[in-house]
Design a protein around this nucleic acid. Structure first.
Lengths: 355, 355
DNA sequence: CTGAAAGCGCTTACAG
DNA sequence: CTGAAAGCGCTTACAG
């Protein structure tokens, strides 16, 4: 089953010159200005003119040039969605939500992944300079810490920006950005409290590195919940590190094997949850009998075994961020920085229950 | 854990007028034409001029207007990726592969989903008309049968198109399109042959509706393999229908329950495979002991239980399609229709093996 | 190597 | 309600 290639029939090429607004005006016996007014609907046009223009448009199959319109209006009709990768379901959910909102408002969504998969290399400031050069009307950005300075470069071009998922530490001199964030601290706090209420005391956590943008709030939620219950933090029960499913599997297995004997574990990202469940399955652990596990999930994922989980609101994140950017573009918001935080829904069990 | 909102510090707005090429020319004491020649690198410029222009550019922080350039050059630097949904990993893989290739060639990728999730409604011809109005330089399209006529509308605008995954039936009068397809017939044929070689005779299939663009070649592969082995086709062993994971679960469960007693089943799409595995798990079937199952998978998916599967080359599909479109845009290909078919790799077991 | 001029296809004050 | 004209910011023959 290899890769085939073939070349078949001749390819048709339609080199027809496209009609312009001047052509339409000539055909309708009027001026380009009037045609423009009719088409944009910005000003009244007499019924007689309207009819003739309509006919001319039909006859010539006229479609306005968006590029020319954009040059004149100093806009692009484009919004960039900047994410690390596209093949992570996390980000494709952002794209789904954002694209729907933006399309409804007449914008096209440009996707840009800042790290190309193999070497994880970073596009760098030149990319943001390019984006800022009037290439798009605005940008939805899932930010990495290292990009912060470049984001300000982009903003200096006058491009409105809304951050998605988290807000990086801003150095002095960098004003805050509009942002839609996720309440990871709340979710992990909530998860830990649930486990405590179920009588667990040796509660482990698998999460991202502390000090990282995503890891810090999660760990804080865990710590606060223990603290509130008067349970001492046991470092042996804490496994922070790589966020991939492989990483999650290693960290989770580490907690099982380092002698700390957890009776419950919170896994604080979707990918790590997948990896942890792989360990659970391979070791044939009975959850929650042998061990209680609460994880993270995306909207779509099916978990097995079917543990409770917090649902990352990926699609809504893109949606809300897009709405915020559209509000910003409409100029209706004052000068205040916009900020919104989305909660994670607790899902006791997978939706796919049958047979 | 609800949804919070807040408004904080004042928002900075940088209303600076962007420098134009005329500003640079004035600053450098030369003409816009020369600045343009220097920046595009299209013609020689004296060292003296070059130096002054470089300085002026730096001093003014000049960044060329892509829109103006586009109007003049009658191009957009944009390629559309048109898919049904964005939240299906299938399509986000296309996006990943395509975006990487296109970005390397200096193009931005515009994503357009033709069906909005809730009602499955279709954007329709007007969408393709909009796209064709010089909005993009080309399009990568995952086609639905119902869109075929509209595709020709788009092509009539002169927009180069490459089809992804499959080629719809073209009515008379519609010339064929460049396309990168997937050899689903080969994969299902191969899977069925494997099962036959393992001694199975009552081999069932879960797949998409016959007559559909995706279902027809798969079923053909199944039928041919049986035929080649002299095994009669048993309609009771054939379960074709809905392509979702829910659908796959139902169809698979149907085969188990309709009395036809299959000893092996081919599941011919990724989502259906997920659903089928859900049934396997809930019924605690031992595979392959009780039943041999061969499925489909994406690059990323982890299967449990860990059955053999054919890997859909999603990312490479986007990549190859992008390359084909770029070749077409470069005008290096003659008039022949381009066509390429990608095979599905057989994966005996999941990559995530550990602990 | 360099400049003046035209033009890409629109939209919008400015007059009438 | 309508038209002539200017201009959005580039690039590229056309001259020199």
């Amino acid at each position: 089953m290899g890769t085939g290639r073939s070349a078949g029939a001749p390819h048709p090429n339609p080199p027809l010159r496209r009609a312009t607004i001047a052509d339409v005006a000539r055909e309708a016996g009027t001026s380009p200005a009037l045609v423009s007014r009719f088409l944009t609907g910005n000003q009244r046009v007499s019924e007689a003119s309207a009819g003739r223009i309509r006919e001319a448009v039909d006859r010539l199959g006229y479609v306005p040039s968006v590029t020319a319109r954009n040059l004149r209006l100093r806009q692009t009709g484009l919004i960039a969605l900047v994410v690390p990768y596209l093949d992570n379901p996390l980000y494709s959910l952002h794209a789904t939500g954002a694209e729907r909102e933006l399309a409804a408002a007449g914008f096209l969504t440009v996707v840009c992944s800042t790290r190309t998969k193999p070497d994880g290399s970073y596009l760098g400031r030149s990319f943001f300079d390019t984006l800022g050069a009037g290439r798009v009307d605005g940008a939805l950005i899932f930010p990495y810490q290292e990009e912060v300075g470049d984001l300000d470069t982009l903003r200096a071009h006058g491009t409105p920006i809304v951050l998605i998922d988290r807000v990086p530490m801003l150095p002095d001199g960098i004003a805050p950005f509009d942002a839609v964030t996720v309440d990871n601290e709340g979710a992990v706090f909530d998860a830990t409290v649930r486990l405590i209420e179920d009588g667990h005391r040796r509660i482990g956590i698998v999460s991202l590195r502390e000090g990282s943008l995503s890891g810090t709030p999660r760990f804080r939620g865990y710590r606060k919940a223990l603290q509130a219950a008067g349970i001492a933090l046991n470092r042996d029960l804490v496994a922070l590190g790589d966020g991939s499913d492989m990483g999650g599997a290693s960290l989770f297995a580490g907690l099982l094997d380092n002698g700390c004997r957890p009776d419950a574990i919170v896994v604080a990202t979707t990918l790590q949850t997948r990896g942890a469940l792989d360990v659970v399955r391979r070791r044939e652990l009975q959850v929650p009998r042998d061990l209680a596990v609460i994880g993270y999930r995306h909207d779509q994922s099916v978990l097995w075994p079917d543990i409770p989980a917090y649902r990352y609101p990926g699609e809504m994140l893109g949606e809300v961020a897009a709405q915020m950017l559209l509000r910003r573009l409409s100029g209706k918001d004052g000068g205040d920085v916009l900020s919104e935080s989305l909660g994670l829904e607790f899902v006791p069990s997978s939706p796919l229950q049958m047979h």
